[in-house]
């Protein structure tokens, strides 16, 4: 219904005026596109918004969306200035927490420019900072691990040893232990978001140490976890940010679930807020309880998680009753988080 209305509006607009169309600047994190995860999702969100805007103004997506893939953190500031100094962009979206400080001291130079940063807070009057309750997704993944693990041991492969990733480890551990109080969770840190080889080595190490499920929270690096899982019998993996059974189909047989972080929806949401004039700077926290215009929980809803379990079911060949038990347990956990009976402790 909403879609139909939009289309009608677009037709009306296109017919009457050819005003300057909005433009979006997107600056990805150093991992770059093709990670099938964080950066790609940021891009999809921006693309989704751009498509809508393009349709509305009768232009192409390329006219609306300009994006860059910085090679190094050193490149960030140059790109902010490059986009901002033109004054053409209605919003500049920065994907990734390491944008925080460079953005913090560059944004004040362009007070009329709107910025969005995803995953950390940049303290400036013209920046909206988008955060996710990652620990909630991690908790649910921990619940899945607790239900499925035979050894009672699981691992987390982190990209870097930083508070963000610590939240993944903590949430996952508490989720698993909520199911099985004796469960043991080990963790390893790759030190990079784009080193699948080292990710594979560290995953193998954890599998050998008895973990039968590894939760990947290492961007491109935990693609190596999937390879390691393929190599050993009865070893599984849980993906992050996007449904990786779908985004990495060659390993869908070992990916039993994915904890979602709907960066795409958050980016889309923030861009559309600019378009409809409701955008505000400040901190925006996305979690299980968040309701947005796209209709379902933006970070991850029970529906999302269960869908992945189901999607993975046929290829990962889990018995039917196991899947049913997992779903019931997940539903219980989600309700617990929403009504506050489950509190996830993070550092």
């Amino acid at each position: 219904m909403r879609k139909l209305l939009l289309v009608l509006a677009v037709v009306a607009l296109a017919a009457t005026v050819a005003v300057g169309h909005p433009k979006i600047g997107l600056i990805l994190a150093t991992g770059g596109l093709g990670d099938r995860s964080f950066n790609d999702m940021g891009y999809w969100g921006a693309e989704m918004a751009a498509e809508e805007i393009a349709e509305q103004y009768g232009v192409s997506v390329d006219d609306v969306l300009d994006y860059v893939e910085p090679r190094e953190i050193a490149d960030y500031e140059g790109y902010y200035r490059e986009f901002a100094r033109t004054g053409e962009y209605d919003i500049i979206v920065c994907i990734g927490f390491d944008h925080a400080e460079p953005l913090e001291f560059t944004a004040p130079d362009y007070p009329d420019q709107k910025f969005v940063i995803v995953d950390d807070v940049a303290d400036a009057d013209n920046v909206a900072s988008v955060l996710f309750n990652d620990q909630e997704a991690a908790f649910l993944c921990g619940v899945v691990a607790g239900m499925i693990s035979d050894t009672g041991k699981a691992g987390v492969l982190g990209g870097m040893d930083i508070p963000l990733i610590r939240r993944f480890v903590d949430g996952f551990t508490q989720g698993m232990q909520w199911v099985d109080a004796d469960a043991e969770v080990m963790s390893r840190f790759v030190g990079a978001w784009n080193d699948p080889t080292l990710g594979m080595e560290l995953s193998r190490e954890m599998y050998r140490a008895g973990a039968d499920i590894i939760y990947g929270a290492a961007g491109g690096s935990h693609l190596g976890t999937f390879v390691a899982a393929e190599d050993s019998a009865d070893r599984w993996a849980i993906g992050t940010d996007v449904d990786q059974a779908w985004s990495v189909p060659e390993h869908s047989d070992v990916i039993i679930a994915s904890g979602l972080k709907r960066v795409d929806l958050a980016v889309y949401e923030e861009i559309m807020k600019v378009i409809d004039g409701t955008w505000e700077p400040g901190v925006i926290q996305y979690g299980l309880a968040t309701e947005t215009r796209t209709g379902h929980g933006i970070a991850f809803g029970p529906w999302d998680v269960s869908e992945y379990i189901q999607a993975s079911y046929s290829t990962a060949s889990l018995p039917n009753d196991v899947v049913r038990d997992v779903l019931l347990k997940l539903d219980e956990a989600v309700q617990g988080i929403l009504d506050g009976t489950i509190e996830i402790e993070v550092e």
Binding site: F97, D98, A100, E101, D161, I162, P163
Partner: peptide
């Protein structure tokens, strides 16, 4: 890096 002696206390 977080946990290191000179980490600034933020995400990055």
């Amino acid at each position: 890096s977080p946990g290191g002696p000179f980490h600034g206390g933020r995400m990055a």
